[in-house]
Write a protein that binds this DNA or RNA. Structure first.
Length: 444
DNA sequence: GTAGGGTTAG
């Protein structure tokens, strides 16, 4: 290239490189601003017109910022601009959708015919992303069909595909299949960590521990996520002594991070070991200089709440606010746990109002679950159903906990009314519940 | 180094 050929303005290649840097720096707005600049500028200089690469980078940038709707919107922009889509584009789009929860994953399914029209066949990266999306939707059969299709196509597979598959099976509640898959795939830090999560969910901390010990001895070397998975396995199985012991080991090796403290705080809370939780919280700040996050505070508040130490929970909440850490739905769940465990629905309801009106935090499935639990413990089954109904009306997706709660409430509710022999009440209760369960079945 | 896929706690 001679001096005469050098361009004063950057071309699309250079701009896309800039966008890629912005994406890596998690600056989606800067990436978008670059795209807009390119579009404006391309009227006079065709060489800066956004390319397939450019839009694909934009999808990535938006995905990284959790803005999945805008990421998927890039497909429409590309079509309007007449920019071709290829396998890279669809891989990024599908991944962005799969990272957008159920709504995003549903949108991904609608993308499949579009991809076919564009003549893009699912390759390994796309199949992996689609399996993730099916996992989010709980579509076990579709995830399995996608894996079989790739495996029987004779194309190469790799451990990333299997990590996505195992994670999808876990999301579908099929821990057995996640565990079975592990036996026939290469052992990497990622596949081992994925199966440890399956062991954790299946409450099999002993298998998780055996694998973890293997990894520490012979590799593949565990990483931060592996430590979290091991601690989580202990947490699920309420093995707080083992969790504390491992955290102490990690601390002495200089490997304990904030997340690891949070998981141990959580298991201490679940075991109503609030004094130990208190000590752990103090040590992490004062001895190890780890800054507690919103998650840490909320977990400590829950630990107090579960232990019936409502006043201490409130005190930590005030500390959290004083440190300008904004509360979220989980924080208020923690505050409700004390009263909820006593069946004090009124107090829980008051906290929920405080949450919305004073702190502008919206209800989520977690806050509703806690209210349902409070009503259940109070024996106020009508109220439980009423809260559940409100959750559905407001378009919030029930989760497994909701389902278990509602099933338990309906059983206890039926028995309760049976004992009371209030036939009229039984009739109205049953009508309400059947309606609510009907709506629920549409979702589950 | 112009663009695609792996875990994210309570």
């Amino acid at each position: 290239m001679t001096a005469d050929d050098s361009e004063v303005w950057p071309n699309a290649h250079v701009c896309t490189t800039m966008m890629s840097l912005a994406t890596r720096a998690r600056d989606a707005d800067k990436a978008l601003a670059t795209l807009e600049w390119m579009k404006r500028r391309s009227a006079d200089a065709r060489e800066v017109a956004p390319t397939t690469h450019t839009y694909t980078t934009c999808v990535q940038a938006l995905d990284g910022a959790g803005r999945w709707e805008e990421a998927l919107g890039m497909l429409g922009e590309m079509k309007r601009a007449g920019t071709a889509r290829n396998a890279h584009t669809y891989s990024a789009l599908v991944r962005a959708g799969a990272n957008g929860g159920r709504a995003g994953a549903r949108a991904v399914v609608k993308l499949i015919p579009e991809m076919k029209r564009d003549g893009v066949e699912p390759d390994l990266a796309i199949a992996s992303a689609l399996i993730s999306a099916f996992g989010v939707l709980g579509s076990e059969d579709n995830a399995r069909a996608m894996l079989r299709a790739i495996e029987s196509s004779g194309r190469a597979t790799d451990s990333k595909l299997y990590v996505d598959y195992m994670t999808a099976m876990c999301r579908c509640g099929n821990y057995e299949e996640a565990i079975e898959t592990f036996t026939r795939v290469p052992r990497t830090t990622f596949t081992c960590t994925a199966v440890m999560k399956a062991y954790a969910e299946a409450m099999d901390w002993k298998l998780a521990e055996a694998l973890f010990e293997d990894m520490r001895r012979d590799g593949p070397a565990p990483n931060d996520h592996t430590y979290s998975a091991m601690l989580h396995a202990y947490e699920k199985s309420l093995q707080w002594e083992r969790a504390v012991r491992l955290l102490n080991q990690l601390t002495s090796e200089g490997k304990a991070k904030e997340i690891h403290h949070n998981i141990v705080l959580s298991v201490l809370g679940k075991c109503t070991q609030w004094q130990r939780a208190e000590v752990l919280f103090r040590d992490m700040r004062e001895l190890y200089n780890i800054q507690p996050s919103r998650v840490t505070y909320s977990t400590l508040i829950s630990a107090y709440g579960r232990s019936g130490k409502t006043d201490l929970a409130r005190k930590v909440f005030e500390q959290m606010l004083a440190r300008r850490i904004p509360p979220d739905d989980y924080t208020f769940v923690g505050l409700m746990l004390g009263p909820a465990s006593e069946g004090n629905f009124r107090e829980c309801s008051k906290i929920a109002t405080e949450m919305k009106e004073l702190y502008d935090v919206e209800h989520t499935v977690h806050t509703y679950n806690t209210l349902i639990q409070a009503a259940d413990i109070a024996g106020n089954y009508d109220k439980a159903v009423e809260v559940y109904d409100e959750l559905l009306q407001r378009g919030i997706e029930p989760n497994n906990t909701t389902r278990e709660l509602v099933v338990a409430v309906s059983k206890r509710g039926a028995n309760f009314y049976d004992r009371q022999q209030k036939t009229a009440a039984v009739a109205s209760y049953a009508a309400g519940l059947v309606g609510v369960m009907g709506m629920a079945l549409g979702r589950w």
